[in-house]
């Protein structure tokens, strides 16, 4: 067994520098690497490029890094929940590359799986396709999209073991699996870190080969963005 465990978030973030490109898992605030984000805010690294489906909310998630102006560029599909983001974007302080959600996921997966690029129909005929190669297959038009290149991937899983194997819960899985192994170094934080052998190999969502560092996360807030409930009749 190849051990991937590190003692804490500080050790997990070793090598993080100004100007780097990060992938961060999560959809909205669901399944985000809360510990890594908090540590990045504390470290004060800046001029970051962040690849993440969303940009958090004003006072949580990536919103915390935006608030301290640590992010130079965001690559996301939807940023509607963050007023500070919209302000920095419209004023030109923040460089933003809006990318269709399925394309964003696939650009991560392509990086993980060794594909330099792929064709997708998403965005054909729109401003997303401007300047990109297009090609017809079986009578339909497609856009050539390139794999991401990133320095670190920060992901969050429900359970993980010393070997770096990961299991996710519910819709907190989202972009996390595709980001594993898609950057030079993948850092996984988990709600429960267990010894190797305790997780059933049949149930692993991400094999440890895609993870370089894993640590036991703490103090998860797991904020709910839109609490919607029904009344008991």
């Amino acid at each position: 067994m190849i051990r991937k465990t590190v003692a804490n978030v500080e050790e997990a973030l070793e090598g993080v520098k100004d100007g780097m490109t990060f992938m961060l898992g999560g959809f909205g605030l669901c399944g985000i690497p809360e510990n890594a984000i908090a540590a990045l805010v504390k470290m004060g690294v800046k001029d970051l490029t962040c690849i993440s489906n969303n940009a958090g909310v004003d006072d949580f998630g990536l919103g915390l890094l935006l608030h301290k102006r640590q992010i130079k560029k965001m690559i996301s599909s939807y940023v509607g929940e963050n007023d500070e983001f919209e302000r920095q974007m419209l004023s030109g302080e923040l460089d933003v590359e809006l990318t269709p959600q399925g394309t964003l996921a696939e650009k991560c997966r392509a990086a993980q799986a060794g594909f330099p690029a792929f064709y997708t129909p998403a965005g054909y005929g729109t401003e997303v396709a401007e300047g990109k190669e297009t090609r017809e297959f079986n009578g339909k038009m497609y856009v050539l999209e390139e794999a991401f290149k990133a320095d670190f991937s920060f992901v969050k899983a429900w359970k993980g073991d010393e070997a770096g194997n990961l299991i996710f819960k519910g819709t907190a899985r989202n972009f996390n699996p595709a980001m594993c192994g898609a950057a030079r170094i993948t850092v996984a934080e988990v709600e429960e870190l267990v010894p190797a052998g305790e997780l059933n190999p049949n149930q692993i969502h991400v094999p440890g080969i895609f993870v370089q560092r894993i640590f036991q996360g703490k103090n998860y807030e797991k904020r709910i963005e839109q609490l919607t409930v029904r009344k008991v009749n």
Partner: peptide, 8 residues
Amino acid sequence: VKGMGGAM
């Protein structure tokens, strides 16, 4: 500018 999400 909210983004296209999965719409495209």
